[in-house]
Amino acid sequence: MKVLIATEKPFAPSAVQGITKELTTAGHEVVLLEKYKEMTELLEAVKDADAMIVRSDKVTPEVLDAAKQLKIVVRAGAGYDSIDTAYAKEKNVIVENTPGQNSNAVAELVFGMLVYAVRNFYNGKAGTELMGKKLGILAFGNVGRNVARIAKGFGMEVYAYDAFCPVEAIEADGVHACKSQEELFQSSDIVSLHIPATPQTVKSINYQLVNMLPKKGILVNTARKEVINEEELLKLMEEREDLKFMTDIMPDADIEFKKFDGRYFSTPKKMGAQTAEANTNAGIAAAKQINAFFATGDTTFQVNK
C-alpha cells in the first residue's frame, strides 16, 4: 500500500525515519510531502495514496474527492477538527487520531506558561509561587491527567470537571471532582483548558464563566482557539485588571489582547506538541495504526464511526 505523509509543518527528521521504518518493514511504500505551500500539491500527491498521515493539515472534501484510493487517514495527534470526518465517512474513509502521544508535552507547556505568568513575565518584580494554589482542569483526558500529575509535584491543590469522566475516576487520581464548569471556575485560582472544539464547546469559555475566577485568576488555553469567546474575554480583561490569559493558540484578536501588557501571552504558533519526543511518539503511533488496519482491519482509534 502507498502511504502519504503529508505535513505542511514537517515531523522532525528522526521522526520521519522512525515512521518510514515502521511502514516499510510492514511492506508499504512511503511518499513524503513536506512544507507544501499550495493545496494543489496535496491534491496531486494524494491521488493514488491508500493511506495518509497528517498533523494539523486540512483534509477537506476536496482532498477526499481527489484521493480515489484512500482508505484511512491518521492524524498524528489528538485533535482532528482539521479533518472533515463526516465527509470521510461518506467516502468510506476511516479517520483515526493518536490520543495520548502528545499529552506530556502539552502538560509541561502548561506549567512553562504558568511559571512565566506568576513570575510577572520575568520583569524583575516579585511574583508568586504555584505551591498552594488551586488548579482547575477542564476535561480530564490524557492531557488533563498529566497536568494533574505535574501540579501535584508543584504542591498545588487540584480540581477537575469532565462531563464524560466519572467522578470516581477523577477522585481515584487524588483530584477533587467538581459537579460543573461553574463550580470549577469558582473553586480555582487557575483554570487550564483541555476541551475539544465541538458545537457544544465553541465560544463556551465566555464572560460569565471566566468572571467566576477569583481575584488574580489565570486562564490557560492549550486546547483549541475556538473554545474561547474572544470578544467577551476582551471585555472582561478590560474590566478586571487582575486577570491573566496565557495561550499556545494565537487568538484572532491577538493585537487587541496585546494591549493587556503583562497579563496576556501567546506563542507565535501552536506549541503544545512541539517536542522531539511528542513528534516521534505521535508519528510512529500513526504508522503502527496504519499497519494494524491493513494487516487485520483494526480500527481501535477510529473517530468517525
Rank of each mutant, 00 (worst) to 15 (best):
S14I: 10
L32Q: 04
K216I: 00
I19L: 05
K216T: 08
Q181I: 04
L109P: 07
T60I: 09
E44S: 14
I218R: 02
F260L: 07
N279A: 01
N102P: 13
I5D: 01
I150N: 02
N123R: 06
R145W: 03
A253V: 00
N304L: 08
N102Y: 11
V59W: 02
G18H: 15
K215H: 15
L23Q: 02
V143D: 03
G141F: 02
A86R: 15
M156S: 04
D57R: 06
A286E: 01
A287W: 12
E238A: 05
M156F: 09
K270H: 05
C165N: 02
K21A: 12
G283T: 04
E230Q: 08
N102C: 07
L213I: 13
T296I: 03
P13W: 15
T198G: 11
K305Q: 13
P199C: 07
Q200F: 04
M156R: 08
N92Q: 14
A197E: 07
Y122W: 13
M52E: 05
Q181P: 09
P166E: 11
N146M: 04
N279R: 09
A287Q: 10
P268C: 06
M1P: 13
I150Q: 03
D189M: 01
F111R: 07
D254P: 02
G79M: 10
A286H: 05
I72Q: 04
A51H: 12
P99N: 11
H176T: 10
A12N: 15
C165Q: 10
A276M: 11
T201K: 10
K47H: 10
E41Y: 07
G27W: 05
A66L: 12
M39A: 07
G136P: 02
V158K: 05
Q69D: 14
L233M: 12
F11M: 06
L213Y: 09
G283R: 07
A148W: 14
N102L: 15
I150R: 03
L114C: 09
M212L: 15
D298Q: 02
N142Y: 14
A26G: 11
R224L: 08
I170W: 03
I5T: 05
T267N: 00
G174E: 08
T85V: 15
T296K: 11
K216S: 10
G100M: 07
R55F: 08
K71W: 06
P251G: 00
V106N: 09
K215I: 14
L32I: 10
K235E: 14
L213P: 11
T275H: 06
S180M: 09
N104G: 00
L43G: 01
L138G: 01
T60Y: 06
A285E: 11
A282M: 09
G100L: 09
Y207V: 02
Y161H: 05
V115R: 11
K35H: 15
F11K: 01
P10S: 02
V3R: 04
K125Q: 14
F301Q: 13
T296G: 04
T20A: 04
D50K: 13
